[in-house]
Nucleic acid binder design. Sequence first.
DNA 1: GAGTAATCCCGCCATC
DNA 2: ACGATGGCGGGATTAC
Length: 340
Amino acid sequence: VSAQNPGSVAVAVTDGIPILELAVLCEVFGIARRDLADPWYEFRICAADPGRTQVGSGFIADTTHDFGDLVNADTVVVSASANVLDKRPAELIDAVVEGHRRGARIVSICAGAFVLAAAGLLDGRRATTHWMHAPLLARRFPNVDVDPSVLYIDDGDILTGAGGAAALDLCLHVVRRDLGPDVANAVARRMVTPTPRPGGQAQDVQPGGQAQGIESPWPTDGGDGLAPLLDWMLGHLGQPLTVSAMARRAHLGDRTLIRQFQTVTGSTPLRWLIAQRVRRARQLLESSDLSVDRIATEAGLGSPANLRRHFTRSVGLSPSDYRRIYRLRHSPQRRGTDLN
DNA sequence: GAGTAATCCCGCCATC
DNA sequence: ACGATGGCGGGATTAC
């Protein structure tokens, strides 16, 4: 049980705020999981006018907290609202500015980035939003370095996330930062979601696969000179790969490769590599009968002990447990059985 | 789980 | 002046 105090998280509710992102916030921060970390977050939902606020999908939020409680928080979260693209509540912008001035960490989800941008907090920074809104954000706020190709961006005191399910990845990232990976993974497991995805993962790309989104608003041709290297790495996970070897293959210096990795994947070479190796190991555990020992070699993790270390840290289960549970769940006789 | 050697990777900075 | 590059130092992380 972690003893670090994660402080308070305040969410601004506005007319028409989408309930998925709101629900994710409530689930991750609003449920006091004191068996995992004590104290847990102090969570509050804040409205410009306390009382009833019409949120999305016909639901109504009823809260006693106003924006005064918002600016006092350690972490301030802003999501989308009904017409945030066109008109953004001035009092919300003011509250965000004030919160940031007081040292709060500011988090935006989906079109909430428009509020942060309007508050001037994103000037000169890298930020992301839902890919559908990214071109508009970039056009309206030219000083913001909009990157629509990632799930979220952690810029220290300001974090921006894409919409939808990526909100979960962002929230779990925040938990990881505040309370450590073990707590974040435990929360993910309780929510029965797969391992949290790193922020650098593309909004419309499966690692190792092809881009699927034909509606993707950003050019797939431009810029990403690292793609061939990443593909090659995915094809050679089993062999030892050092940063220098990768850099040579990409005709770059070590330092430059690390920087490129940062901008393209949001991760670093080794972290990305380990994540892919664990992914590969998981596939092999699911689809083959290879021994754990063999899978460790095959996935490039070397020794079984090393596989276990990385696998447990990112998946939350040991490799053998993972295989056992996966098999139970997918065995024909027991289809549909719940194994929580 | 601790101890080690190796490697990573990020700030700093001269250079292109 | 400006942005990208990449060598260096060394605390952080990884491998065994």
